[in-house]
Amino acid sequence: MMERIPILRMGNYLLVTIQVDMHDKLALTLQDDLTTRISEVNAKGVLIDISSLEIVDSFIGRTLANIASMARVLDAHTVVVGMQPAVAITLVELGMSLPGIRTALNVESGMEYLRETVTSHQESDDDGDSTED
């Protein structure tokens, strides 16, 4: 049985909590699973909690950025929350400022951001041709 990171659904949002050390294969599996789930449940927001992640390398950083871009293509906003100071310093030293990723301090403020952006986008969608039931 291969190791997988669980993806939880909460209404329009998907929650991912990374609680194990990420290795390259796990990151790629997460990318696969997450994109599949987003299109399955038509998710509008993705929250990735990395507060327990202590080691990060350039590959993981790039995968996170990729996941965010892929989610955006699938019409979902991504927010990465709870990055540890050491991880942030490492990423900056690696030259990865991850400009495409939204970040938040903790799950609470991350959810707040998702609610705000998703609601405002739906409102602007409603002005045009509404696809909502």
Binding site: V80, M83, Q84, P85, A88, L91, V92, S97, L105
Partner: peptide, 12 residues
């Protein structure tokens, strides 16, 4: 700039 970027990565 590095400090500011790192803080942004953490969500501040």
């Amino acid at each position: 700039l590095k400090t500011i970027t790192a803080a942004r990565l953490m969500g501040a």
